[in-house]
Simulated assay, not measured.
Amino acid sequence: MSLIGSEVKPFKAQAYHNGKFVEVTEGDFKGKWSIICFYPADFTFVCPTELEDLQNNYETFKKLGAEVYSVSTDTHFTHKAWHDHSETIRKLTYVMIGDPSHTLSRNFDVLIEAEGLADRGTFLVDPDGIIQSVEINAGNIGRDANILIDKIKAAQYVRNNPGEVCPAKWKEGGATLKPSLDLVGKI
């Protein structure tokens, strides 16, 4: 079953954020755009490259009105330890959610049950708490934050311009389409 168009399910989790432990719930995903980025585990190899890429683009995400949340099945304590010991992870200023109960990983359908780890899943949630985009990669394939930026811009555009859609490879300022009977078979 697709998660597109569904509301984020209720949860409560502990997170590490800017030197503090904080609680995060589904309510934190409302009122702004949210990027929820699941990754398999702390102290690994591809994961820190992705998290650093998100951090390198964090200011752009914030300018777009989006908050970033990284999630693994590790605890918030493990996130702090990784933050304290890795030069790459030490740079992170967005929220790192711990999901040792696997609640979020199950809610977003990314839990690898046999391993107790999450797939590389990226979810774009609108200000109403509705999932607008889902991307899931195999564990050995890293993601690119620049592609995510384009997805956010497209999602924001269609939200603010009902009746228009963004075609393939759409970039901000590019031409959009207005689906109608007149376009059928002409594209």
Rank of each mutant, 00 (worst) to 15 (best):
residue 32 K to I: 07
residue 115 E to R: 04
residue 21 F to S: 05
residue 16 Y to A: 05
residue 118 A to D: 03
residue 43 F to N: 11
residue 40 P to E: 10
residue 174 G to H: 02
residue 88 T to C: 15
residue 96 M to Y: 07
residue 57 N to W: 01
residue 107 N to W: 05
residue 187 I to T: 11
residue 164 E to I: 06
residue 179 P to L: 09
residue 86 S to H: 10
residue 54 L to N: 11
residue 138 A to Y: 00
residue 85 H to K: 15
residue 8 V to Q: 06
residue 28 D to M: 04
residue 19 G to A: 04
residue 166 C to M: 08
residue 178 K to S: 10
residue 144 D to P: 00
residue 118 A to F: 07
residue 57 N to M: 05
residue 89 I to N: 07
residue 3 L to G: 11
residue 145 A to M: 02
residue 142 G to P: 04
residue 133 S to F: 03
residue 14 Q to Y: 01
residue 8 V to I: 11
residue 81 A to F: 09
residue 53 D to C: 05
residue 57 N to H: 15
residue 79 H to K: 08
residue 175 A to Q: 10
residue 172 E to D: 13
residue 118 A to Y: 04
residue 39 Y to T: 04
residue 147 I to S: 04
residue 83 H to K: 14
residue 90 R to T: 05
residue 56 N to L: 15
residue 107 N to L: 03
residue 39 Y to G: 01
residue 36 I to W: 08
residue 91 K to Y: 02
residue 90 R to A: 15
residue 22 V to R: 08
residue 2 S to P: 12
residue 50 E to Q: 13
residue 156 Q to C: 02
residue 55 Q to G: 12
residue 22 V to I: 13
residue 54 L to F: 15
residue 52 E to V: 14
residue 26 E to D: 14
residue 137 N to V: 01
residue 148 L to F: 06
residue 36 I to D: 09
residue 39 Y to Q: 05
residue 87 E to A: 14
residue 152 I to H: 09
residue 47 C to M: 06
residue 139 G to M: 09
residue 139 G to L: 14
residue 71 V to W: 06
residue 22 V to L: 08
residue 116 G to Q: 00
residue 121 G to P: 02
residue 163 G to N: 08
residue 48 P to Q: 12
residue 97 I to T: 10
residue 109 D to E: 12
residue 97 I to N: 13
residue 186 K to Y: 04
residue 112 I to Y: 03
residue 61 F to N: 15
residue 57 N to R: 12
residue 154 A to T: 03
residue 122 T to Y: 03
residue 110 V to K: 04
residue 50 E to R: 10
residue 144 D to Q: 01
residue 90 R to H: 14
residue 12 K to C: 01
residue 138 A to E: 04
residue 21 F to R: 02
residue 45 F to A: 03
residue 80 K to I: 06
residue 134 V to K: 08
residue 84 D to N: 07
residue 91 K to S: 07
residue 45 F to W: 07
residue 123 F to K: 02
residue 169 K to V: 09
residue 59 E to I: 12
residue 77 F to Y: 14
residue 49 T to N: 11
residue 157 Y to C: 01
residue 84 D to G: 02
residue 18 N to P: 03
residue 131 I to K: 00
residue 163 G to Y: 07
residue 37 C to V: 08
residue 44 T to R: 03
residue 177 L to G: 05
residue 160 N to S: 14
residue 11 F to H: 02
residue 69 Y to K: 13
residue 63 K to A: 14
residue 60 T to P: 09
residue 126 D to P: 00
residue 115 E to Q: 06
residue 168 A to Q: 11
residue 124 L to N: 00
residue 82 W to A: 02
residue 125 V to I: 12
residue 39 Y to M: 02
residue 163 G to I: 07
residue 66 A to E: 12
residue 25 T to I: 07
residue 69 Y to H: 12
residue 76 H to D: 14
residue 168 A to C: 06
residue 120 R to I: 02
residue 144 D to N: 13
residue 110 V to H: 04
residue 29 F to I: 03
residue 22 V to T: 12
residue 142 G to H: 01
residue 94 Y to S: 13
residue 75 T to G: 10
residue 178 K to N: 06
residue 77 F to C: 06
residue 66 A to C: 12
residue 61 F to Q: 14
residue 83 H to I: 04
residue 40 P to Q: 10
residue 6 S to W: 03
residue 186 K to P: 05
residue 9 K to E: 14
residue 169 K to A: 11
residue 92 L to T: 11
residue 146 N to E: 13
residue 154 A to I: 06
residue 164 E to N: 13
residue 44 T to L: 11
residue 87 E to H: 10
residue 126 D to A: 00
residue 54 L to D: 09
residue 100 P to G: 09
residue 144 D to G: 00
residue 65 G to C: 13
residue 109 D to Y: 00
residue 85 H to R: 15
